[in-house]
């Protein structure tokens, strides 16, 4: 896919990246990335392990320098005004960035002190975040005793102490149990409601689908596709309903009866009927088969998800 130049930075553009390149030695990690993220939206960078997602976050969050290309965050140039960029961003990395030898409350106070909030404001902010992330009870315990989910929550709470306008979340739910994952998703949704821009990396397609306004697929250092979750799903073969029958004659009868019978599989005794998966459509198909005395042995509905997009586009 041809890379589009990002739109000129406007008041509503939170992140604008052009031609970003990075190699580690001989290994080319990012090969000319262009992207734009609008303020108050969630942007998901999706890709398999080793695609360059973390490198992208490390560059945009001023941790490491790119070899080439331009990037502006909150209107500030990454190369010439990194200090300004740092004032606007917050980062929760893949590896827990909490201080194990401090308590949860002390970690938050440390952040507040480094942002020069002042005693009273620091205390208030710390208390508020502990409450919001359900950590009040554990506030006085050393982080070394925290569970993985609690660490992740504390990590994000620390990122929010400064009320950043742009937040980077590098694989925020990797290794979390399903319940903690849902909690994390809700927190991200709440953030964008307040106008915060979220740049998220994930290898979970469901996560991108759940959270993102825009998704870009990163593979081997280039963006191979981008769009809304809906747009990406439209790029691949549509959904279908697979009907299995008891024998070949029933299969043939079903084929004759249905308006759009789709592809038959004589071996498996199945029909793949193109459908959107909606209930009225399914009811129509089943009623028609029933009216003609055709028994369906088994029915499975397959709607396209981002896994299909990913598999189709990366070809593996």
């Amino acid at each position: 896919m041809a890379s589009r130049a990002p739109q000129a930075a406007t008041a509503t553009t939170a992140i604008a990246v052009t031609g970003l390149r990075k190699s580690f030695g001989e290994h080319l990690v990012l090969d000319g990335i262009d992207l734009t993220v609008q303020q108050g939206t969630v942007f998901a960078l999706l890709g398999p392990n080793g695609a360059g997602k973390t490198t992208m976050v490390q560059i945009l969050s001023t941790l490491i320098r790119a070899d080439g290309g331009q990037a502006a965050l909150a209107g500030y140039d990454l190369n010439t005004e990194p200090a300004r960029v740092r004032e606007a961003i917050g980062v929760t990395g893949q590896y827990s960035a909490v201080d194990e030898l401090l308590t949860g409350a002390e970690n938050l106070m440390l952040m507040a002190d480094l942002y020069h909030l002042g005693r009273a404001a620091a205390k208030a902010r710390t208390g508020e975040l502990l409450g919001r992330f359900d950590l009040t009870e554990a506030a006085g315990k050393l982080v070394a005793t925290y569970s993985g989910g609690m660490r992740r929550k504390l990590d994000l709470a620390m990122t929010l102490v400064s009320e950043p306008r742009i937040i980077f979340l590098d694989e925020p739910t990797t290794g979390l149990d399903p319940r903690s994952r849902r909690t994390m998703w809700q927190i991200v949704r709440d953030l964008t409601r307040g106008g915060v821009t979220v740049f998220l990396t994930t290898q979970y397609l469901e996560e991108a689908d759940q959270l993102a306004d825009q998704i870009a697929l990163l593979d081997h250092g280039t963006l191979i596709a981008r769009g809304t979750p809906e747009e990406l799903k439209r790029r691949i073969p549509g959904g279908h309903t697979r009907l299995r029958f008891a024998d070949a004659s029933t299969l043939a009868k079903a084929q004759a009866v249905l308006a759009r019978p789709g592809k038959p599989d004589e071996e498996a005794l199945t029909l793949e009927v193109p459908t959107s998966g909606s209930v009225p459509e399914l009811r129509g198909i089943l009623t028609r088969l029933d009216d003609h005395g055709v028994d369906v042995a088994e029915l499975t509905v397959h709607t396209p998800d981002l896994d299909d997009v990913f598999l189709t586009l990366t070809g593996n």
Binding site: L63, R86, E87, V91, G93, Y95, A97, L114, S162
Partner: peptide
């Protein structure tokens, strides 16, 4: 080698 220094490096300090 811990993660918190990476956090500090991305902060305006």
């Amino acid at each position: 080698t811990g993660g918190i220094i990476a956090r500090f490096r991305t902060m305006p300090i």
